[in-house]
Design a protein around this nucleic acid. Structure first.
Lengths: 192, 192
DNA sequence: GTCTATATACAGATAGAC
DNA sequence: GTCTATCTGTATATAGAC
């Protein structure tokens, strides 16, 4: 790997675990086995390096249309839940990173935030659409409001994932909680 | 207020918003209108100050038995949910602080963490107990497992609260989500 | 207890050789 | 492109006067 990529990779790991301020360029240089001066040659200053790291980190944050198409209406809801869950578990480190950015008064470039929020909103709308389609097909109870209920499902899912992210043991496993979520928040809404 | 308390109060605010590393003692001194040397005289070093701040912050984290006693069994579940919600909204700043500590590889003194976790566990057990009592009284469906379901309720609640903590607008309000949570995760479990 | 002045270390950043 | 050496600011921490 070339030096530039090595720096970027090392910095990504360090920024994500220690945050912006607590990550010194001396440490990045040492871990990447390059001189501090080389970091400045490639990225000009610490902030530019940070932005390059953010750009690299957010890269996989997108919805692939082919993955959500083609299901029968009732299965779509559970499938969307699975997709969300899979995405977060596949990107634990960066999700944890972004969540901690949301919580801190840290360096938080607004364009990255709005991109994460847009993605979240998109997901919620897909979920609401599937719920509404299910209602219209007479599968789900007409009592629920699709928008409100999709927000609740995502919130619950986030809660489960935060629990997994913070490494709380001794509670039920994430998989089991998601199963319970589907049972209570999806299956129980079916018209008998 | 005496200088020591002033320092403690100022440091609490600053550590919570900027974190350990990003909070300089020069800033604490300036904001508290004292000299830097006085901080060292009172707290010896930065880490000791931080621990004093943590001890002060965690102080309100306890369950008051009188607040959960005396309800009729079915109402207990919703009451516990309300208590949890109220506690978090009354302590937003420190909850956000602790959550960000859980997410970062920061300074994380294990005894404080285990105290937060114990409290959480206690809450979950109270909730499971209420659910079980409701089942035995024939009010809640025998289908659910109290332990698993109380974990799900708390996870969902956490998800709603994290959303509020991260300041995500444009989604449903926390109050509305909690109402939906109660409807789907509590009321729908009642035997008709 | 509270201050000013200072020691020491390390941060981000630059100069210039190769 | 990559390095060593160095500048400058600011951090934690100490010494010592009052």
């Amino acid at each position: 790997m070339d030096a530039r990529s090595k720096i970027l990779e090392t910095a990504t790991k360090l920024f994500a675990t220690h945050g912006y301020d607590s990550t010194s360029l001396s440490l990045v240089a040492k871990d990447a086995s390059v001189s501090k001066a080389l970091i400045f040659w490639h990225f000009e200053n610490k902030e530019n390096l940070y932005e390059a790291v953010l750009a690299r980190t957010i890269e996989p944050y997108r919805i692939e249309p082919e993955r959500i198409a083609g299901q029968s209406v009732p299965d779509q809801v559970e499938h969307l839940i699975d997709l969300y869950y899979e995405f977060v578990t596949e990107n634990v480190h960066s999700v944890r990173f972004f969540l901690s950015l949301f919580l801190r008064d840290d360096k938080r470039p607004d364009d990255f935030f709005s991109r994460v929020l847009d993605l979240y909103k998109h997901y919620r709308e897909l979920l609401a659409g599937a719920l509404r389609a299910g209602q219209e097909a007479g599968i789900f109870s007409p009592e629920i409001e699709p928008e409100a209920h999709s927000a609740l499902i995502l919130s619950s899912l986030n809660g489960i994932l935060v629990q997994a992210l913070t490494g709380e043991t001794d509670v039920a496993s994430p998989e089991r909680l998601v199963k319970g979520l589907k049972a209570s928040l999806v299956d129980r809404l079916r018209v008998q």
